[in-house]
């Protein structure tokens, strides 16, 4: 269902986004190739969210295109950074940027992508009021700022002390806020009313957190290659997510200490990953995550209330209905 919508309705929009992104910025062909590699791949979901926010309030998507490209570039920059920090060599089955070109090049390319993100915002029509453009700069810098802060704090956190709420707060900083701000920016650029813009933001916030939890769940289920990463990847690298935080607080004493050991280990064998997954199930963490996801999706649905009827609103409702659809999560 989602695949169909994506291909039928969004296919052409994705082409427009690609036309804006896949342009040469350098005189040297090898640098252009490097840049194209950095921005290729993925479904352009951040850009699509901005455009969707714009059309949801009756705006024309051209008005939001510079911001759509800016958010997509910022997202790509953050993926390069994430992959370096997580030492991930594959993303959606393709070598990550640092795996292909080296970590030093990855640092510089992340700067290039961020600078190009800000540069996109010089491309608004002259007729756009400067307070709208200034607000775009504010949303973009705020989003990226919060994302970096979330990542820094995640690296610093005393993992044992993290509650489920802490993990959700970090998830919001790292990815939820961007989804929220993409929609908000779209609504603003489409000249939506305050209530509509707020509704888009709240929808983004809930659906963003729900997606993060679904992602956490998928990583302990057998959805092969849901992001091109191995099953149980978070567990392997000892990353604290909602599931692990829940289990570490709610499981019985023996399970708790065993899980603590496993998460602290440098490298886990496949059998140990399996054991960790079993511990998560037994502690009720998987059930708790599923309940939390249901609640978040319900909030997302409610927040759409003030939005006028449109294809985009229908599409958002479909996304809520099919949030667990493997297509969203497989490469």
């Amino acid at each position: 269902m989602l695949r169909l919508i994506y291909q039928a309705i969004l296919g052409r929009v994705v082409e427009e986004i690609n036309a804006g992104l896949l342009v040469d910025s350098f005189r040297e062909p090898d640098l252009n190739r490097m840049y194209i590699q950095a921005v290729s791949g993925g479904r352009r979901s951040r850009a699509l969210l901005v455009l969707a926010g714009c059309e949801a309030v009756g705006g024309r998507r051209r008005a939001a295109m510079p911001m759509a490209l800016a958010m997509e570039l910022a997202h790509k920059a953050s993926l390069i950074v994430d992959d370096v920090v997580d030492r991930d060599l594959l993303r959606r089955g393709r070598p990550t940027f640092h795996a292909r070109y080296g970590p030093r090049q990855a640092v510089v390319m992340s700067d290039i992508l961020m600078s190009l993100a800000y540069q996109q915002l010089t491309k608004f029509d002259r007729s756009d009021e400067s307070h709208v453009v200034a607000e775009c700069y504010r949303l973009l810098s705020d989003t990226y700022h919060t994302m970096c802060l979330g990542e820094i704090q995640e690296l610093l956190l005393d993992e044992g002390g993290m509650s489920e709420d802490n993990t959700l707060a970090v998830a919001h900083k790292k990815s939820g806020l961007m989804i929220e701000n993409c929609l908000r920016a779209g609504g603003m650029l489409g000249r939506g009313q305050e209530a509509e813009i707020a509704a888009l933001g709240e929808f983004g916030r809930s659906i963003g957190l729900a997606f993060q939890l679904i992602n956490d769940l998928n990583s302990v289920k057998d959805i092969e290659g849901h992001t091109g990463r191995p099953v149980g990847n978070d567990l392997r690298i000892g990353r604290m997510n909602f599931l692990a935080a829940h289990a570490l607080r709610r499981a019985n004493a023996a399970d708790r200490s065993r899980l603590g050991q496993l998460l602290a280990a440098d490298e886990l064998e496949t059998t140990q990953v399996q054991e960790s997954i079993e511990l998560l199930h037994r502690s009720g963490a998987v059930r708790a995550a599923e309940e939390q996801i249901r609640a978040l999706l319900e909030e997302a649905r409610k927040s759409l209330g003030p939005l006028r009827l449109s294809i985009i609103k229908t599409l958002f409702l479909k996304v809520i209905d099919h949030a667990g659809d493997p297509w969203l999560w497989t490469s």
């Binding site: 920059a77 950074v81 370096v84 920090v85 640092v107 992340s110 700067d111 961020m114 800000y118 009021e129 400067s130 307070h131 453009v133 200034a134 607000e135 700069y137 504010r138 973009l140 810098s141 705020d142 990226y144 700022h145 970096c148 802060l149 990542e151 820094i152 690296l155």
Partner: peptide, 22 residues
Amino acid sequence: LLMGHLLISTAFRLLASLQSSY
């Protein structure tokens, strides 16, 4: 890597929140 990005985004944040949007 992260702190470099935090510094630059803080710079943009300061500028973007100047009173005059122009």
